[in-house]
Nucleic acid binder design. Sequence first.
DNA 1: TGTTGTCTATCTATCGATAGGTAGACGCTT
DNA 2: AAGCGTCTACCTATCGATAGATAGACAACA
Lengths: 159, 159
Amino acid sequence: MDAAEERIRRTGYSGFSFREIAADVGVKSASVHYHFPTKEKLAAAVARRYTDRFLEAVDHQLAGGEDIVEAWRQVFRVALQRDGRMCLCGALGATSQDLSREVRDEVKRFFLLGIDKLTMAGLARNSALHVLAALEGAMLTANVLEDPSLFDKGTAALA
Amino acid sequence: MDAAEERIRRTGYSGFSFREIAADVGVKSASVHYHFPTKEKLAAAVARRYTDRFLEAVDHQLAGGEDIVEAWRQVFRVALQRDGRMCLCGALGATSQDLSREVRDEVKRFFLLGIDKLTMAGLARNSALHVLAALEGAMLTANVLEDPSLFDKGTAALA
DNA sequence: TGTTGTCTATCTATCGATAGGTAGACGCTT
DNA sequence: AAGCGTCTACCTATCGATAGATAGACAACA
């Protein structure tokens, strides 16, 4: 799943294959099929784990006394700068119209829970949408322009 | 190129094929190769045309007396709601790390010219980054959640 | 002994790309 | 006007590579 996550975050859904992630971890593609019968199931499982971990990380930031928006911003920043990759749900969501229901619903879950969490913390619904959009978009921009510092610059106005 | 643009906006770079777009327009894949020798060249050409058209559309909005940010917002809105698809450069940019230099540079061009245009109009560089990121992110969010109205809600704060 | 996990081997379908050929439109020269 | 080359835009056929997926054998372990 680690290998799959990395590949998906770099290439999107249609860009990764069983053979590649099998090679990454040193097994054969048939062995990956043993654990995840289809590509959809694998992607859905990876997306679910990613979302759960992401929200946990936000909670951890909040526990450290961070402001809610700054907490989200910090977790996105780490995802971009430590991993050097896009947000998994951003990478999948960009081709959302081409995903199967199962995978698409997991990606949806990331955004829906994100909006929930931000509104629970007191933000208006439109503000929650704006924060999530800006963070996801800044990550994309920084990635395209190959300059991680652009994430901070593009999200400075949120703080 | 129309067919290719639509496919790329729905499925990203690795998700579209010569055969598919050939079938879309009623020819064979070899005929597409005649006009575009490689997949990279085709994607790069489509991205360049998309960027040029996009910037022209912004200029057209500006000529109508629209505020610069509102002009950009309006063009993004049309791209989302009329076409019902992601921004081409957003769809390609999400898997930016996996694109060839040629295609990647065309996607970069979209963002660089966008930032240029916004700063020329008087915005601070960080503000320009923020606007572009928020628009691109709001488009992604609206697409994933299958609700075009979320674009307006998520970008209301820009106006 | 039964379960779990991985293997080898193979299937069908599709990928991007190329080779070689053809029909028709156009311009130039005789 | 007739003939000749050239160009465009497609075609059929095929290439090697790779995709996702499956069946069945084998080894380790409880």
